[in-house]
């Protein structure tokens, strides 16, 4: 058993888990083409959820702040993107891929800017008064999520809103008899780029070093002369902006969004952060990909279990690793 463990560790440890899950799924599904489609869908979904969850994980890791309002940034991002894309309908509908991309870029920039500004406001007004008090954090941030949902209702109305997509992101391409949706590949690439950027920031810059150290031991970083509280505002803003970006991508993926989006995603995002292990973006990525894959496989194999699949996944993983798959060293 020990040797098996060592071998697994050598081969990549917990990073093997998504591989193992997808291999088991291949056996159960039996049809390679469906399996490829589902796997790509799962990875793409995982990447989008990763964007939404990464900020939450760092925010908790750095300041022990439980923010149940985090997914409000996701839904605002989605609705802002929908509005910007509708407003730039001309660019979006044109034959020029450049104009199409400009419209999408504009949606991202708008959502990102909103995330930064709203993140700053939220941290200063809602979070700061309740540092070090988990019960109040839960109550006040859940309240904030409800307020955010009502604001979306007031601004955009209660009817589902459709999100236009440019033609170059529509449809699928075929490899043999396997159909792969273009939007999913796009989500995968974009999510991958953001992950790399985050990874490099955390591992190759001084700010990143401070964040990693602060996640481990906030007090000691302060005793070395650094104001973690000021750094935290920045991390909170960046995390909110990333969540808003995740919302933009999610909006384009679903193409129909409702104000309930935030509350729905909140559960998923928390599950991902808990599965992954708090405070590490490697863990968050792993957790997000697991959730994405399992949701798609289970949705295909046993549709009735689809809703429960996240919860079951979380329970299984926590029984095996109570601190999550890849928690930050504490």
């Amino acid at each position: 058993m020990d040797q098996v463990n060592k071998l697994i560790e050598r081969l990549g440890g917990v990073y093997l888990l998504p591989v193992a899950v997808s291999l088991i799924a291949l056996v159960l599904i039996g049809v390679p083409s469906s399996w490829v489609t589902l796997t790509v869908a799962g990875l793409a979904m995982g990447m989008m959820i990763f964007l939404m969850a990464s900020g939450l994980s760092l925010v908790f890791g750095l300041m022990d702040v439980l923010n149940f309002g985090h997914s409000a940034f996701v839904s605002f991002g989605a609705f802002i993107a929908a509005s910007v894309l509708a407003w730039l309908g001309g660019w979006l509908g044109s034959d020029s891929i450049i104009l199409n991309s400009m419209a999408i870029l504009a949606a991202f920039i708008a959502a990102f800017q909103f995330g930064l500004a709203a993140g700053w406001f939220f941290e200063t007004v809602v979070i700061k008064p309740v540092y070090h008090d988990h019960l109040r954090q839960i109550l006040i941030t859940m309240g904030a999520l409800i307020v955010a949902e009502q604001m979306i209702l007031a601004i955009w109305g209660g009817a589902p809103m459709s999100v236009p997509r440019p033609s170059f992101l529509e449809g699928a391409f075929l490899i043999g008899d396997v159909a792969i949706e273009i939007y999913r590949v796009y989500a995968l690439i974009l999510g991958g780029l953001v992950y790399i950027a985050l990874y490099l920031t955390l591992n190759r810059t001084r700010i990143g070093l401070l964040i990693r150290a602060g996640v481990e031991n906030r007090e000691m970083v302060e005793a070395l002369g650094f104001r973690i509280d000021r750094l935290f505002v920045g991390v909170f803003m960046a995390g909110s902006a990333l969540a808003a970006m995740g919302g933009v991508m999610w909006a384009g993926y679903e193409t129909l969004i409702t104000p309930a989006l935030g509350a729905e995603m909140m559960i998923v995002v928390f599950i991902v952060v808990i599965i992954g292990g708090l405070g590490s973006i490697e863990g968050t990525l792993l957790g997000a990909i697991m959730v994405g894959l399992v949701a798609n496989y289970v949705g295909f194999l046993a549709p009735k279990l689809a809703l429960a699949s996240n919860m079951i996944l979380m329970m299984v993983i926590l029984l095996w690793r109570p601190n999550g798959l890849k928690p930050a060293v504490k």
Binding site: R212, A213, N217
Partner: peptide, 15 residues
């Protein structure tokens, strides 16, 4: 109060 996830070098450069 050392940072276990950081290398010796990183622990020191932070200071």
């Amino acid at each position: 109060g050392i940072f276990g996830g950081l290398t010796i070098e990183e622990n020191l450069i932070l200071a």
